[in-house]
């Protein structure tokens, strides 16, 4: 389980996360949603240690997130916009990642038990692209490779930032199937997405951020009951509309339009 306690982060005078405290349940799929500039990416980056919080702390299964990178052995991360070295080949990139994960030596260097990774190369038909230079790949193929790397090392925590962006319908369906299988395996998954219909069949828990503040952290079931909405998409749209009503902020209203 990930526990976030009183997390604050500012960039200059801009408060991006304001006293956020929440728990991401273990072995479940949690959707992280909110309008633009809500602090979703900063929260994910904080879990990865890419962003240093101003105050507060993050604890993953009793291991506080620190500068020691060993805790990231158990994390699989899919960034929103994957960028790879242009002049390496697909196969070389996978070798590179295997190499720094220590997978090529067949042993985990840290204290965490890892399940065997899931090879998505065939799932996404990437086998034929092994000798292609990364700089020549289309956006969709990059995203498939991005997913293949995130799922490759048997992580028990997956952080997926807009995972289906740029994927064709077939790849999108396959990725959702793989995420569902990870849930069966007991993997904790945190997904951010603007396309809420993507999360409809997957998310079991929802975290809703607005302006860096935690508005909602509850099970999807509970949220549907409280809002009286028929599905997750409409429940979140109602939450967003409420936030706009509470404070008429131009930025928020833009995001409601996007979500609706």
């Amino acid at each position: 389980m990930i526990r976030i306690e009183n997390l604050n982060k500012s960039y200059g005078r801009l408060d991006v996360l304001r006293d956020v405290s929440l728990a991401i349940p273990r072995g479940r799929i949690t959707a992280l949603v909110g309008p633009n500039a809500a602090g979703k990416t900063t929260l994910v980056k904080s879990i990865l240690g890419l962003v240093r919080p101003g105050s507060g702390r993050i604890v993953i299964d009793d291991h506080p997130v620190s500068r020691d990178p060993v805790y990231r052995e158990r994390i699989g991360y899919m960034p929103q916009q994957p960028a790879f070295p242009d002049n390496l080949k697909v196969g070389e990139l996978l070798e590179f990642m295997d190499d720094i994960r220590g997978a090529s030596e067949g042993a985990a260097a840290g204290p965490f038990d890892r399940a065997p990774g899931r090879d998505l190369i065939d799932t996404f038909n990437l086998s034929d692209s092994m000798d292609r230079r990364l700089g020549t790949l289309s956006g969709g193929t990059r995203q498939k490779l991005n997913a293949a790397i995130a799922f490759r090392y048997g992580a028990d925590l997956l952080l997926l930032d807009e995972p289906t962006a740029g994927l064709d319908p077939l790849a999108r369906t396959r990725l959702k199937e793989v995420i569902a299988q990870e849930r069966e395996r007991g993997t904790t998954v945190l997904v951010t997405s603007h396309v809420l219909s993507e999360l409809r069949d997957l998310a079991e828990h929802i975290i809703y951020l607005v302006d860096g503040r935690l508005e909602v952290s509850s099970s999807v079931h509970e949220l549907l009951r409280e809002t009286g909405a028929p599905d997750l998409e409409q429940a979140v749209a109602r939450l967003m509309a409420e936030s706009v009503d509470a404070g008429t902020d131009a930025q928020r209203s833009g995001a409601v339009g996007e979500a609706g």
């Binding site: 990178p69 990231r72 720094i100």
Partner: peptide, 16 residues
Amino acid sequence: GARDFNRMLLAQPVGR
């Protein structure tokens, strides 16, 4: 140019 990929590398068990 490598900033995004560096973020990805730092999401692995790699120290800064």
